[in-house]
């Protein structure tokens, strides 16, 4: 299971559900989590059953990176593509996301407040923090093309021997 899945979507939020769904299914290949009971569908056909912690981490991080590209790199105007390469293996998933939009200064992202209360609850700037915290590795190389590399490893106790 080291085949790479390649998807290219226009760089707008309209295509986000397609990309998220592909990533969710690829994460499930690694975690071997089961899909939602078909007798209990959600109202959103693209809402994924993301219950396994591995799937949760991968999907949560990817959603934020896609948002970032569509909003900041392509400034909600589209006009470019988002190239996604997903490589699931038996113990990890690597996702490379490439765009030709404006480079992003990852060092400009402010940290979350250390003390969180009603007054300091943030209303923005959480996306990169979510992605970075959810993943084992996250790198960004400004371009163009800009390249995000996301890696999440399955805990050793959850790796199934002999899973195809």
């Amino acid at each position: 299971m080291a085949a790479t899945i390649r998807i290219s979507v226009p760089g707008t939020l309209r295509y986000r559900p397609i990309a998220v769904r592909a990533v969710a299914e690829a994460a499930r290949l690694v975690s071997a989590s089961s899909p939602r009971d078909p007798k209990n569908p959600t109202i959103d056909p693209l809402a994924h059953d993301v219950r396994h912690p591995f799937d949760t981490a991968v999907v949560s991080a990817f959603m934020e990176i896609f948002n970032n590209i569509a909003i900041h790199a392509y400034q909600r105007k589209g006009g470019g593509t988002i190239e996604i390469e997903i490589t699931p293996s038996k113990d990890a998933i690597v996702i490379e996301v490439k765009d030709d939009g404006r480079p992003f200064d990852i060092d400009d992202v402010a940290p979350l407040p250390t003390e969180l209360d009603e007054e300091t609850l943030p209303e923005g700037g959480m996306g990169i923090h979510i992605a970075k915290t959810m993943l084992d590795e996250m790198t960004y190389a400004p371009g163009p093309p800009n390249l995000w590399r996301l890696c999440k490893r399955l805990p050793a106790t959850q790796i199934s021997v002999g899973r195809s």
Binding site: D44, V50, M63, E64, P122, G124, M126
Partner: peptide, 10 residues
């Protein structure tokens, strides 16, 4: 609620 991102949290 099945999924949320930072925009939903905001």
């Amino acid at each position: 609620l099945d999924l949320i991102d930072s925009s939903g949290v905001a």
